[in-house]
C-alpha cells in the first residue's frame, strides 16, 4: 500500500468505493434500514412503545397491533421501531468511544519516548485482561438506570481491543520508508500523525470500528440478558429478546422480530466493514470486469 492509498481519496471516494462492492452495498442497505427505522421512531410509532394496556395482553399480530402485543399489552411494532433508536445509540456510542480510546491508547503507545510508550503497552495488556463483565457490573451498580453505562462499559472494553490492533498498524506505518523520509526531512510529530499515520491506519480502523459496532449490538443483548443492559422501559432489542425468551416455544413469533432485527443489524455493520476493507485494499478491490465478485 502506498502512502496515498487511503489518504488520496476523500470521504466521497471511500463511499463510492464501498458501494462498488457487493457486500458494501448490502451492508449499507441494511444499516440504512436501521437508521431509517430509528429516525422514523423519533417522530412516529403506531403506539406509545411503553404504554401498557391490560386489554391487549398478547394481542395477536396483524390486528390492531401490526406485530401483536406483549404480555403487558405494549405494541411490539412500536417497541421494535423505538428499539432501533436505542440499539443504534448503543452501537454508535460504543463505537465512537472505542475509537477515541483505541486511537488514544495506540498513539500513546507508539509516539512518546520508549519508557512511556512501553508503559502504555503493558497497561493495555492489563486492561485487555480485565474482565469486561466486571466493568459492566460495577458501572451498572454505581449508576443504575442509565443507558450510557452500557455504552461506557462496552466502549472501554472494546476500545482497548481496538487500541491493541491499531497499535500494531501504527508501528507498521511508522517503519515505512515514507514516514522515515518525512522524519528525516524534519516533519513534526503532529504533521506526521496528520499526514501519514491517521490516513494510513484509517482503512483498518474503519473496518475495526464497523466490526465493533456489530459486536456492540450482540454484547448489548448479552448484557441485557444479565440485567445489565439499558434500563426499563427502554425497549432495546437485547432487552426485548431477554424479556420474551421464556415464550420461545409458546409464542415463537413475538421473539422472531427482535431476534431478526439484531441479526440484520449486525450483518449490516459487518458487511459494511467488509465493503470498507475491500474498498481500502487495492488487492481486494475487484477489477472492473469482475465487478460481480466482491466476496462478503
Amino acid at each position: 500500500m502506498s502512502a496515498g492509498a487511503g489518504a488520496g481519496r476523500g470521504a466521497g471516494g471511500i463511499v463510492r468505493g464501498v458501494l462498488r462492492t457487493r457486500s458494501g452495498r448490502l451492508g449499507a442497505a441494511l444499516s440504512g434500514l436501521i437508521v431509517l427505522a430509528a429516525l422514523v421512531s423519533l417522530v412516529w410509532t403506531p403506539y406509545d412503545p411503553t404504554q401498557v394496556d391490560p386489554a391487549d395482553s398478547w394481542a395477536p399480530p396483524f390486528g390492531r397491533h401490526p406485530l401483536g402485543a406483549d404480555r403487558l399489552g405494549r405494541d411490539l411494532c412500536s417497541q421494535l421501531l423505538a428499539g432501533a433508536r436505542i440499539t443504534l445509540a448503543v452501537a454508535v456510542g460504543t463505537t465512537a468511544l472505542a475509537a477515541v480510546i483505541g486511537l488514544a491508547l495506540a498513539l500513546s503507545a507508539v509516539l512518546p519516548p520508549p519508557p512511556v510508550a512501553r508503559g502504555v503497552v503493558h497497561l493495555v495488556d492489563v486492561l485487555v485482561a480485565f474482565p469486561l463483565l466486571l466493568i459492566a457490573l460495577v458501572l451498572a451498580a454505581v449508576f443504575p438506570g442509565r443507558t450510557w453505562t452500557t455504552v461506557v462499559a462496552l466502549g472501554l472494553g472494546l476500545g482497548v481491543q481496538v487500541g491493541r490492533v491499531t497499535r500494531g498498524e501504527l508501528r507498521r506505518v511508522l517503519a515505512t520508508d515514507y514516514v522515515l523520509a518525512a522524519r528525516a526531512a524534519g516533519a513534526g510529530t503532529g504533521r506526521i500523525v496528520r499526514r501519514h499515520l491517521l490516513p494510513n491506519v484509517a482503512p483498518t480502523l474503519w473496518v475495526q470500528l464497523s466490526l465493533t459496532a456489530g459486536v456492540a449490538v450482540v454484547a448489548e443483548a448479552a448484557l441485557s440478558y444479565l440485567g445489565l443492559g439499558p434500563p426499563p422501559p427502554a425497549p432495546s432489542w437485547g432487552r426485548s429478546l431477554h424479556d420474551l425468551q421464556p415464550y420461545l416455544t409458546l409464542r415463537p413469533l413475538v421473539l422472531l422480530w427482535p431476534g431478526l432485527a439484531i441479526v440484520l443489524t449486525v450483518l449490516g455493520f459487518n458487511l459494511l466493514g467488509d465493503g470498507l476493507r475491500e474498498a481500502a485494499d487495492p488487492h481486494l478491490r475487484p477489477a472492473p470486469h469482475t465487478a460481480v465478485d466482491g466476496a462478503p
Binding site: T50, V52, R71, L72, P232, P233, D243
Partner: peptide, 11 residues
C-alpha cells in the same frame, strides 16, 4: 421482574 415496575410507571 421489571414488568411490574414498567406497568406501574406506565399507569
Amino acid at each position: 421482574p421489571t414488568s411490574i415496575a414498567e406497568y406501574v410507571a406506565s399507569q
